[in-house]
């Protein structure tokens, strides 16, 4: 079922966006693969092969545009590729992961991905209104990855570049996440925490 036939898959919010004191946007769907197993073995090889990226350390992410390897737990990675590359990536993993105790599962459709863009300090602040993460520029730097919660739902987030946060959540709560991000980014509610 990983072959991309039929109508183009649509995201939960059809690419909704909101321009507050930072911009909130639902990003186009991205290929996402959960990898579970021994991170030191073929799993790492599979992840690096399909993305061309280095392995991240604990609580880190390696990123190149739409491709990424995110460290999720001591035995779990999230590999991201452009949606169009997903079938090929799954195929590659299928041949790389000979160990039956290595699991690759397509979860692209189960997630929504959002971007928060704008001045770096304000982008960080919007996250700080919702997630118990130290978003101070000295503390949370590009290359880091946090699995956390956004108000009442689980989420994971990272900084692909200064002034840009990307975050993923479950597809079913995309509307909620968009609502709380937009509320947090309402002009007039700037807290100036990282100013």
């Amino acid at each position: 079922m990983s072959d991309m036939t039929g109508p183009t898959p649509v995201g939960a919010l059809h690419g909704a966006s909101y321009d507050g004191y930072v911009r909130i946007a639902e990003e186009p769907m991205r290929g996402m693969i959960t990898l579970r197993g021994d991170l030191s073995g073929p799993l790492a090889k599979g992840a690096t092969t399909v993305t061309g990226l280095d392995m991240p350390g604990p609580r880190e992410v390696t990123v190149m545009t739409e491709k990424a390897i995110a460290w999720m737990s001591p035995d779990e990675l999230m590999v991201m590729v452009p949606l169009a590359d997903l079938p090929a990536a799954l195929e590659t993993l299928d041949t790389t992961l000979r160990d039956p105790f290595a699991t690759a599962v397509d979860v692209s459709q189960a997630r929504s991905i959002f971007s928060i863009t704008g001045p770096d300090a304000l982008v960080r602040e919007v996250v700080a209104k919702l997630a118990p993460v130290d978003m101070d520029p000295q503390q949370f730097r590009p290359g880091m990855f946090r699995r956390t919660r956004l108000a009442q739902v689980p989420a994971a987030l990272w900084l692909p570049a200064p002034g840009r946060v990307e975050l993923i959540c479950f597809r079913s709560v995309a509307d909620y996440v968009f609502t709380i991000l937009a509320d947090a980014a309402k002009p007039g509610s700037e807290a100036g925490l990282f100013a």
């Binding site: 939960a12 919702l130 108000a151 597809r171 079913s172 709560v173 909620y176 709380i180 509320d183």
Partner: peptide, 16 residues
């Protein structure tokens, strides 16, 4: 309560 009011009071899960 913070932002937890109206549409953001509680996450509502939606099917596709």
């Amino acid at each position: 309560a913070g932002g937890a009011r109206d549409a953001a009071f509680q996450p509502l899960r939606r099917t596709p």
